[in-house]
Design a protein around this nucleic acid. Structure first.
Length: 412
DNA sequence: TGTCCACTGGAACGTACGGCTT
DNA sequence: AAGCCGTACGTTCCAGTGGACA
């Protein structure tokens, strides 16, 4: 006991004595909005000009913003809106904004709920018809006479799932309201997203379009340099580490979020090791750690049947089955369910779950035709056996079957 | 060249649940 | 309490299909 106390004291002492790396690590978080956004002056000015009429309490044009992840779309919009709203409030204009990430919020109903919250109306999180929520929102907006700037981020996710009805209704609000007004700013990662929209929606929504090109490696370097300056202590970050972060992120379609993540995690690893400087080696380890952490999180939070499907493919790979196809995976899956005494789902459902696992990047599933042996999916694990074994060994259900040898594989 | 396999994937529908309005 | 609503998760049905094989 004495021994472990001494060890603990050592750990705490070392922690307190370690070289300090960060002055403010929050600056490197993806949702931090800095006071200066390098290489985005054009977009900032463009959006500001489009929205400026709002200060006269006139409706600004709707805006459509495109660009891949980590190109600064969200940061720029939030930055401009913050400045615009505060200026508006200075001169007593009735302007409010509401930012909604459609992918996180998930459904049309909940988007409306968020919009309602932003103008202080209370809407129950379930129980009402969507049209009722819409009416309440519209009435409240008109009563208050507010000009609302609605930002619908990752709008492509919502439209793919539920269609463009919400956008259509919102673009029409201004026709029915007397006092209140709405300006819509849609942000999409998907450049082909417009094809999904009704022509009427496109015409009213695309009054103005702003495109965000990916950052180049030198541009990423500038961004990282500015952030590192306020987040790291002096002389802690080596130039090599910073350059490597930009280069790695530039290779991944110029994703600034990715670059900042790399830098933050590299700093955290340096701190944990008690090292004095962040080096290229720390950045390389950070890259590995980010990917591993993502995979482990996905694996742990998978629903039980998805875990069973994944486990089936894992067991097949371990039994040296060369090409896992849907029908065989299903056979193993059913056997695992029976072993655990669980009800099994239909093959149609499992086919869908395999597609979902493919999207997360844990699997590669490719539709192939085997001629007269039919059409199916060839399925491969995209992560190592070791990771699956480790994660599933600590899962109360999966650890019962992680070493199981499926009988249906014995004669294959 | 036509057949036919083993699925794929869209669509409609069912069920359970929490929670609203009346 | 009854009736309705949105959401999540699943089933059932079925037309469609790429390409090996006879």
């Amino acid at each position: 006991m004495q021994n472990s106390k001494d060890q603990l004291d050592d750990i705490f002492d070392n922690f307190l004595k370690r070289p300090k790396i960060f002055t403010d690590r929050e600056v490197l978080r993806p949702d931090f909005i800095p006071n200066h956004l390098p290489h985005r002056d054009d977009q900032i000015h463009q959006i500001a000009k489009i929205l400026a009429p709002v200060l006269d309490e006139e409706r600004g044009s709707n805006i459509f913003i495109y660009g891949k992840t980590g190109t600064g779309k969200t940061a720029v919009v939030k930055y401009v809106l913050k400045r615009l709203i505060s200026r508006g409030h200075e001169i007593g204009a009735l302007i409010e904004d509401c930012y909604v990430n459609c992918r996180l919020v998930g459904t049309v109903y909940r988007v409306l709920l968020k919009l309602g919250e932003s103008i202080d109306i209370k809407i129950p999180f379930t129980g009402l018809a969507t049209s009722e929520v819409y009416d309440r929102f519209e009435n409240a907006l008109d009563n208050k006479g507010v000009l609302l700037l609605v930002v619908l981020d990752e709008i492509d996710a919502l439209v793919k799932e539920y269609g463009d009805n919400l956008i259509y209704e919102l673009t029409r609000v201004n026709e029915t309201l007397n006092k209140g007004k709405v300006s819509i700013i849609c942000i999409s990662n998907d450049l082909l997203f417009k094809d999904l929209l009704d022509p009427r929606v496109i015409s009213s929504l695309s009054e103005e379009e702003v495109v965000f090109r990916p950052y180049t490696a030198p541009e990423l370097n500038d961004i990282l340099f500015e952030r590192a300056d306020i987040s790291f202590k002096d002389d802690v970050l080596t130039a090599g580490a910073l350059n490597l972060c930009s280069a790695l992120a530039a290779a991944e379609h110029g994703d600034a979020r990715r670059a900042l993540d790399l830098l933050r995690v590299a700093g955290e690893l340096t701190e944990r090791d008690g090292d004095a400087k962040v080096t290229e080696e720390h950045v390389r380890r950070a890259q590995k750690k980010i990917e591993e952490d993502r995979v482990v999180l996905v694996l742990k939070t998978l629903p039980i049947h998805s875990k069973l499907v994944l486990c089936s493919i894992y067991l097949m790979k371990r039994s040296k089955v060369k090409n896992a196809i849907t029908g065989d995976v299903y056979e193993v899956y059913v056997e695992l369910c029976n072993t655990l005494g669980l009800e099994f789902l239909t093959q149609r459902r499992i086919s869908g779950l395999i597609n979902e696992l493919d999207i997360t990047g844990i699997l590669n599933a490719r539709v192939v035709s085997l001629g007269r042996y039919g059409r199916t999916k060839k399925i491969r694990l995209a992560i190592s056996n070791v990771v699956i074994k480790n994660v599933f060994s600590s899962d109360p259900w999966m650890n019962k079957i992680i070493d199981y040898v499926p009988k249906c594989l014995l004669n294959k």
